[in-house]
C-alpha cells in the first residue's frame, strides 16, 4: 500500500442548520492527483477550508503526514507542506512579479519568522535565480519580472499564484478551481502548466467544475454531493458510475 499524505476521517461541519459536510472520509495517496468534483454548494470549498485551517470541523480528524492538523494556524499548516491556491487570485498586487515569487521561497527557507536585515534582498542570488526560473516557465523573462503583479490579467494572476505555491515544493498542493471563469485558451494554458507539474510527481487535490480539466489531469476522482462523498474511483470508473451520472453529471456532459 502506498503512502498516505492526507487522511480525512469522518469529518462533519454544520453552518446553522445546514449540514455542509456529512461524515466525509478521504485518503490522498502520495504522488497522486486527486480531483474533487460536485455541484455548487456540495461542500467542496468547505472541505478544503477544513484542511487548510480556515475552518475547524465539528467532528472528525484531518491528519497530514501522520500529524493531526485540526486547530493549527494557516502558517503552521503551510510550513508542514500543505499549500493552497485560492479561487480568487491571492497575490501581492503591489509587489513585482519577482518579489511575489521570492516571498514564498523565503518562507520555505527561513520559516515562519526571521529577522535578518543585514543581507539585502538583491543579494539573495540563489532565491532570485530560482524565482526567475519559475517565472520563465510562465513565459515571463528579462525585465518583465520587475513589473507590478497587480497590472496582470486575471488568468496570469492565477498562474502566478500557482507558481508562488510551486516554489515552496509542497508535499500537498490544494487547487481550488484553478480555471474558474477562464476563457478556453486561458484554461488550456493552465492545463499545460498543471500537466507539467504532474510530471514532477507532486501530490495534489484539485477542486474543479470543468470536466475537461478534471479528466486531463486527475488520477482519482471523488464526487461530493450535499456534503457527502457519493463515489470515488478512477476517471473511467466515475464516467461509468450510474449514481454519479444521476446526481451530478447527467451523462450527456461526458
Amino acid at each position: 500500500m502506498s503512502n498516505l499524505v492526507l487522511n480525512i476521517k469522518s469529518v462533519n461541519k454544520t453552518f446553522g442548520g445546514l449540514q455542509a459536510l456529512n461524515d466525509v472520509n478521504l485518503e490522498i495517496e502520495e504522488g497522486k492527483v486527486h480531483a474533487i468534483i460536485g455541484p455548487n454548494g456540495a461542500g467542496k470549498s468547505t472541505l478544503l477550508n477544513c484542511c487548510i485551517g480556515r475552518l475547524i470541523p465539528d467532528t472528525g480528524t484531518v491528519t497530514f503526514d501522520g500529524e493531526n492538523i485540526i486547530g493549527k494556524k494557516a502558517h503552521e499548516i503551510n510550513q508542514l507542506g500543505m499549500v493552497r491556491v485560492f479561487q480568487t487570485p491571492e497575490i501581492f498586487p503591489d509587489l513585482s512579479l519577482l518579489e511575489n515569487v521570492m516571498i514564498p521561497a523565503f518562507a520555505k527557507r527561513d520559516g515562519a519568522y526571521s529577522l535578518n536585515i543585514f543581507k539585502a534582498a538583491a543579494d539573495e542570488r540563489e532565491i532570485i535565480n530560482e524565482a526567475e526560473k519559475m517565472l520563465n516557465e510562465l513565459g515571463i523573462q528579462g525585465d518583465h519580472v520587475h513589473h507590478h503583479a497587480g497590472s496582470m490579467s486575471r488568468g496570469d494572476k492565477r498562474r502566478l499564484e500557482l507558481v508562488m505555491c510551486l516554489i515552496q515544493h509542497p508535499r500537498l498542493l490544494l487547487l481550488d478551481e484553478p480555471t474558474a471563469g477562464m476563457a478556453r485558451h486561458d484554461t488550456n494554458r493552465t492545463i499545460e502548466l498543471l500537466k507539467k507539474i504532474k510530471e514532477r510527481g507532486m501530490t495534489k487535490i484539485i477542486i474543479e467544475h470543468d470536466m475537461h480539466v478534471v479528466f486531463s489531469v486527475a488520477d482519482t476522482i471523488s464526487v461530493l454531493a450535499q456534503g457527502a462523498i457519493i463515489a470515488s474511483g478512477t476517471p473511467d470508473e466515475i464516467r461509468g458510475n450510474p449514481i454519479v451520472q444521476d446526481a451530478y453529471l447527467g451523462g450527456a456532459h461526458l
Binding site: I52, K73, A74, H75, N78, V83, R84, F86, E90, I91, F92, P93, D94, L95, E99, M102, I103, P104, F106, A107, D110, S114, L115, N116, I117, F118, K119, A120, A121, E124, M164, Q168
Partner: peptide, 20 residues
C-alpha cells in the same frame, strides 16, 4: 532586506502571507 520585503507583502495582502 527580505524582512522589509515581507513587511511590504503584509501591506499588500496579509491573507496570502499567512497561507504562504
Amino acid at each position: 532586506s527580505p524582512f522589509g520585503m515581507k513587511l511590504q507583502a503584509i501591506k499588500s495582502n496579509q491573507t496570502r502571507m499567512k497561507y504562504t
